[in-house]
Every structure is written in C-alpha cells, then in structure tokens.
Write a protein that binds this DNA or RNA. Structure first.
Length: 605
DNA sequence: CCCTGTGTTGGAATC
DNA sequence: CGATTCCAACACAGG
C-alpha cells in the first residue's frame, strides 16, 4: 500500500509468550525493520495442545488473549489480524517463509526447556533458508541467561543472589517499556496469504494429556488455516471442550490486562502498601492481590510495564522508603521473584521440572514418586506416571485433588482452584504444604501436575519452583514451619466466608465449627442441614447433603511428616544422585530405626 | 573453626 | 487487638 516506505522486507512475527502490542521489544524490533509486508502469526503447537496439561479455564484464557490481539491488529489495519496456523512451528514455519517470501523472522526469547529446543530447531531451519532471525528478550524483568551468568553460571536459588546478579545488569533496573505501535503494515493480499493446497502435516495426537477434558471431536488440526479456512482463532468447540466447562470469572486479553493494571495503579495506597504476606488468602470478592499473573504468563501484560508503573507510584510516595532497597514482599519484589524462578530454570534446564536428574532438588522418600522419565510414548499412555507405593496415599491425593479431604479450608481452596483457575498465593502454600510435607507426604510432582492443569496463570518455572519451595526440597528448608489446615485459614477468615462460598454444604455451620465440622454435635449438623460423614464421594443415598469426615488426624500426620523429613534430610540425597537415578535409594530409607537421630526422635514421643 | 544473622508469608502462648 | 517470644532447629553467607 505505502509504496514510499517499501523496503522489500517481508517480516514474519511469531507470537508465543507475548500476546500484546504494548511494550514488546521483539515486536518493536520487527516494525523497526520498516517491512513492506508484515505477518503476525501464531502456530498452534501440538506440544502445548497434547503434551502440556491444560484445563478448560486456561484454554479459554489463551483464546481470549488471541482474539483480543487479533482485534487490536485489525483496529490498526483493517487487513490485519493474528494469523493462526494449525501446525507445529518446526514444520509449518519453513512452509510459510517459502510461500510468503519471508526475509525476516522475529520473536520474543523464551528460556523454557522445550521452547529452547524448539527455537533452536527453528532458527537452524531459518538460517538454512536464508531467513534472518531477530530474537528479543521481553518476558521477564531481566534476561534469565544474563542473571545466571552474573550469578556465576549457577541457578539462582535465593532472592539475595538474584538481587546481586540484577545489580550487575543496568544497576538492578529493568529496561523501560518501548512504545506501542500506532500503525501496522499490510500483510500480502488475500490471494497470496491463502494457504490452500499447502501440504498439511497432522500432529502426533497421542499421548493426549488433555483427553479427559474433551467431550466432542477434536477438530483443531483438520485444516491448516482452521475449519473455516480463515486463519481464525480456535474455539473451545474445535478443541473438543464444552464452553460451559470454562467457569472462571477471570478473563484474558491485553485490553482486560491493561484495564486491570490501570485500576490498581490508580489506587496508590494499595500499590504503595502492598506486602504479600499481609494480603488475605481468604478474600474472594474482590481478591486481595492483583490477578495479573495470568496476563504475565500469556504476555497480555508486559512485566516491565507493570514494574515501572508500580515504581512510578512508589517513587511518588517515597518519603520514608529507603531508595532502591529490595523488599521481596512488595510488588516490585514479587515481580523479581518471578525472575528468580525463570533464571533457576534457565540454568538447570529440563530436569528443573522434576526430581529425577535435578541437582537443585532434595530427594525425599515421598509417596507416589514419579517414575523415571520414559521415552516410550506407549508406556506413558498405558501406565500411571508414578509409583503407587501406598493405596492410602493415592486415596489422599485423589481426595486432595477433588476437594474432599474433610478439611474445609483445604477443600474450599481446591474447589476454588478448579472452578476459577486461580487461588491466592498463600492458599497455594496451604494446599501444597498439606499434600507434601505437612499432611499426605505425597510427592510435590503430583501436586505440580494438578496445578499445571488447573491454574490459568500456570508458568512452568514458577509452578515447580514454588512446589519445591513448599515441599522444602529446594529454595526453602524450614520444614518444621508447617501450615495448619485449621489455624492458618482461621487467622485470615475467622467467619469462614471462603469455606461457605466454595463448600456451600457447610454454609449454615456456626463459625465455631466451620473449620472443624466433624466436631459439631450431630444435632447441630442436622440443624445446619449437612451431616459430616463418609469420604465425600457422590452417593446415591437421599439423606440430604453431607460433608466428608477428615481423611486423617492432622496432628498425627504432621508428626509422621516431620520425622520423615528429618530422616530424608539426614539421608541427604538430591535428584541427580546415582541412587536416585538407578532406584537404589530405597535401601537407604529401609530400617529407619537404625538411624540414630530417628531412633532418638521416636523414643522421645 | 565457631558464631551470628537472615531467609518473601507457621503456630501457640503471652503480654 | 498487635507485637513479642518460644517452639525446635534447616541452609547459607559472612565475620
């Protein structure tokens, strides 16, 4: 169209972790090339579709981000949209740059283990095809690889290390946001954009980790440009998921993200006083934190814009605040925390997401341990990926996952997680501690998988990092600090409002019993319309609503877990020790009575 | 070597 | 009520 600005550059912009137009260094660099043809694409990657655990709420959030971005493009240029192609990037991108005469490929850097392998493959293919590649960082405050290198090449395992490393990069200040584009060049004309007749490689759909969510035919990959041949953003229908299954009130998209951020920034008291440990995990209308984490995950909000907008408010208020002192619990500190997990993951690579082969994680003799990673796809499909060493522990795990442990604080949070795809950070602490070192003694990897499926803000590095933290296997070690499923909730929510909301069968219980309904006299249980009995499985009996009895005596379990942790710390294995890799660790945990420290402990009791 | 202080966010008892 | 202390005791950095 604008012949005057023509440079004969055909730029393919590959959206992945950056579903936004504002403050995108990669997009900024792409447009700075002054392209005569500009094509923003999303490749519908089977790896995310079938090999990552994604529940209905996160699917919808992603689709909303894509739709919103597509509309934003169209608003700037009626010929533009987000061009969604239904094929793996490794196979489809070479077709696209051949077909569209692409001269430049531009994308945002991603240090996730799978993303690195994928991007390396794509970059190599691009180089072979003579396509110039430009990669820009923009997903975190600092480049994770730079943080690692300033940390002596080692994974960042504490905030002081991150602070020190960040101090060596731009004196600890993230880069300022770049401007939002005011115009977008044209794509090719309709005829040249059309991929009709292009060879289309269907994906390897098995194993499908998300099969459990699909109730209709999976039509994601029927045609390269989508079922309507229009490069459209997929619908939940096409994924095979009923729209009614996405029940979260939290919605995706850059428009929504900027609106949310703006609302918070206007509340200068809130921004200035924010201290994570002082925000209530029980608040639900409205929540006590910003709800911006899912937007950071999908890149519908720039973390640097978030950081600087907050910083501006704090600078304005700065009176007694010491300048530039890191406070891990305030909002900038929270955002830097995210960088710590990204950098730790960037240094460790693939094993960071599990115990096996991961040198930073402590080995504990958990129940339901992961089996060693299998390369045989059929194996993974037919068997559980973990050892069922204790049917009782598996029952506890299932009851935890389904929100029927009999501890209302835990069950309310787990049900909120399933319905809304989000719970407060301290709620996550509470349920994670309960599943691992503070109750069930089940492997943190089981819990991380459930969070991966259900959280709309699931970020691989942050999720496993936090699970290691809470299970006292990395980052944190004070395992005698244990969350009580009764006392912790009560401290924040003495009336039990969160429980009444998410476990409505208990709504009428007096606050005296709301956290421990099993202690309520039978007469009161009848009066309040809910009997405390059974295991919470849906029953066919017609005796009215019930709530399960607690699945174990918490104080008793807490002591068992403490003893177990103490013993496992004494044994002192890590995820990459030979005994862990070859399975011989079991012998080190046998005959625990012979461990002198352990014997002393049990004799005391 | 020891000792001390710190580490994003525990609980219960006490003042 | 909010703040302080103890509980029993981890890892790590720094003097």
């Amino acid at each position: 169209m604008k012949a005057a600005s023509a440079t004969n550059k055909v730029v393919l912009y590959w959206h992945r972790t950056d579903l936004r137009l504002h403050d995108s260094p990669a997009l900024h660099a792409a447009l700075a090339l002054n392209p005569s043809v500009f094509i923003p694409v999303w490749t519908w990657d089977p790896h995310y579709v079938y090999r990552s655990r994604v529940g209905p709420n996160r699917w919808r959030f992603l689709l909303e981000c894509q739709s919103d971005l597509s509309k934003a493009y169209t608003k700037l240029n009626a010929k533009q949209r987000l061009w969604v192609v239904r094929e793996a990037p490794q196979t489809v991108l070479p077709k696209l740059w051949k077909r569209w005469g692409v001269t430049h490929l531009v994308f945002e850097k991603d240090t996730d283990a799978y993303a690195r392998a994928r991007d390396e493959a794509v970059v190599q293919l691009a180089e072979e095809a003579g396509v110039e590649v430009i990669v820009k960082m923009g997903r975190t405050l600092f480049d994770p690889d730079a943080l690692v290198s300033k940390n002596g090449g080692k994974p960042t395992m504490s905030m002081s290390q991150v602070e020190k490393a960040a101090g060596k990069i731009d004196r600890g200040f993230p880069q300022k946001p770049v401007e939002t584009p005011g115009s977008i060049p044209d794509p090719w004309d309709e005829k040249r954009m059309d991929l009709a007749g292009a060879e289309h490689e269907g994906p390897e759909a098995e194993p499908d980790l998300n099969a459990v969510h699909r109730t209709a035919a999976d039509q994601q990959y029927t045609q390269i440009m989508g079922p309507k041949d229009d490069f459209g953003v997929p619908t939940l229908d096409e994924i095979g998921i009923e729209a009614s299954k996405a029940t979260s009130p939290h919605r995706g998209g850059e428009t929504e993200a900027l609106k949310l951020l703006d609302g918070h920034i206007k509340n200068e008291e809130y921004i200035g006083r924010f201290e994570k440990p002082n925000t209530s995990p029980a608040a639900f209308e409205p929540q006590s934190t910003t709800l911006l984490s899912p937007h950071l995950h999908f890149g519908s909000l720039s973390v640097r814009k978030f950081w600087w907008d907050v910083q501006d408010v704090m600078n304005k208020r700065k009176k007694e605040n010491k300048p530039n002192a890191l406070i891990p619990t305030n909002l900038p500190g929270q955002l830097l925390f995210r960088d710590m997990y990204f950098a730790a993951q960037a240094a460790v690579g693939e094993p960071f997401s599990r115990t096996y082969g991961n040198h930073v994680v402590r080995f504990i003799d958990w129940h339901l341990q992961s089996k060693p990673p299998s390369t045989d796809a059929e194996d993974a499909e037919n068997e559980k990926p973990y050892e069922v060493d204790s049917p009782e522990a598996e029952e506890w795990f299932i009851r935890w996952r389904e929100g029927r442990t009999g501890f209302p604080w835990i069950d309310a949070l787990m049900r909120q997680l399933k319905q809304e795809g989000w719970i407060h950070h301290l709620g996550r602490h509470s349920v994670a501690c309960f599943l691992t070192r503070g109750g069930c003694y089940v492997s943190w990897e089981r819990g991380a998988e459930v969070f991966e499926e259900l959280l709309i803000d699931h970020e691989p590095a942050c999720n496993v990092g936090n699970w290691m933290w809470l299970s006292c296997t990395a980052f944190f070690a004070q395992f005698y600090r244990c969350y009580s499923p009764v006392a912790f909730g009560k401290k924040w929510d003495p009336q039990g409002e969160l429980i009444r909301r998410y476990c409505p069968e208990l709504a009428q219980f007096d606050k005296k019993y709301i956290y421990e309904p099993w202690k309520a006299p039978i007469a009161d249980q009848k009066k309040w319309g809910c009997r405390v009995t059974g295991d919470g499985k849906p029953s066919s009996s017609d005796d009215g609503p019930t709530y399960p009895k607690p699945m174990f005596d918490f104080d008793e379990r807490r002591q068992v877990c403490l003893d177990g942790m103490k013993n496992a710390y004494d044994v002192g294995l890590h995820g990459n020790d030979p005994q862990v890799l070859d399975g011989s660790w079991k012998s080190l945990f046998e005959g625990e009575e012979e461990n002198p420290k352990k014997r002393q402990k049990t004799e005391k009791i």
